[in-house]
Simulated scan of single mutants.
Amino acid sequence: MKDQVQKSKKKYKRKGQRKEVLFKDDEWDIVKSKAASMNLSTTKYIVKMALSCDYAPQAIFGFAELTRELSKIGTNINQLARKANAVNNIYAEDYERMREEYARLCLLLKRKISTLRRTAV
């Protein structure tokens, strides 16, 4: 009798890795809803999304331009500070250039944040 029980257990043994994921209640409701809308079980839906999602590389990839712009602005601010300290004055055109670069930085930040919000959903 023991041999029959052991044989039947081997017959139904699953292949693969089992992992546990903890969802908050509101997150789980969203997962269930999306799985149902695709006519999938929650397990199949989670596996499908995990294998098809390229979220992390996209989120990190777009910051190179932003980092370059921040570096340029930092360099310009340092140049203005050195100049202002040397002559105890700052020219209006230098101030205007710094203000324009600051505005451009704000615009880039808003665009990046907007993009990240769209891709995070």
Results as ranks from 00 to 15, higher is better:
Asn78Met: 06
Thr67Gly: 05
Glu65His: 11
Gln6Leu: 09
Phe61Trp: 13
Gly74Arg: 01
Ala103Phe: 04
Met38Arg: 12
Ala84Ile: 01
Glu96Arg: 11
Ile73His: 14
Ala103Gln: 05
Pro57Trp: 08
Ala50Met: 14
Phe61Asn: 10
Glu100Cys: 06
Lys32Cys: 07
Val87Leu: 10
Cys53Leu: 13
Leu116Val: 10
Leu40Ile: 02
Tyr95Gly: 02
Ile46Leu: 09
Ile77Trp: 03
Lys112Pro: 01
Arg82Trp: 04
Thr67Tyr: 11
Lys2Val: 11
Arg82Ile: 15
Trp28Ala: 03
Ala84Asp: 01
Ser8Cys: 02
Lys15Arg: 13
Asp26Pro: 00
Cys53Gly: 03
Glu27Leu: 11
Lys2Ala: 13
Ser41His: 03
Lys7Thr: 09
Lys15Trp: 02
Lys34Glu: 05
Asp25Gln: 12
Ala36Gln: 14
Val21Thr: 15
Val21Asp: 04
Glu100Pro: 00
Ser71Lys: 11
Gly16Asn: 06
Met38Gln: 08
Arg104Glu: 07
Phe63Thr: 14
Thr115Asp: 15
Leu40Lys: 06
Trp28Met: 06
Leu51Gln: 07
Glu93Leu: 04
Ile90Gln: 00
Leu105Ala: 05
Tyr55Val: 01
Tyr12Trp: 07
Ser33Phe: 01
Glu101Met: 15
Lys34Phe: 00
Ala36Met: 07
Ser33Gly: 04
Cys53Val: 06
Lys10Met: 09
Lys24Val: 01
Lys2Gly: 15
Phe61His: 13
Lys2Gln: 12
Leu108Ala: 02
Asn89Ala: 14
Lys110Pro: 00
Lys19Trp: 04
Asn39Arg: 15
Glu93Pro: 00
Ile73Glu: 07
Ala81Ser: 11
Asn76Gly: 03
Lys10Asp: 05
Thr42Gln: 11
Arg99Glu: 12
Phe23Gln: 04
Asn78Trp: 06
Asn89Tyr: 13
Phe23Glu: 02
Asp29Arg: 06
Lys13Met: 09
Glu101Ala: 07
Met98Ile: 05
Gly16Val: 10
Asp29Lys: 11
Asn85Tyr: 11
Gln79Tyr: 02
Trp28Ser: 01
Ala86Phe: 10
Lys15Asp: 03
Lys10Leu: 10
Lys34His: 02
Ala84Thr: 09
Arg14Met: 06
Gln6Val: 12
Lys13Leu: 12
Tyr95Glu: 08
Thr43Asn: 13
Leu105His: 10
Ile113Ala: 15
Glu20Arg: 14
Leu105Gln: 14
Tyr55Leu: 08
Asn78Pro: 05
Ala81Gln: 09
Ser33Asn: 15
Lys7Asp: 10
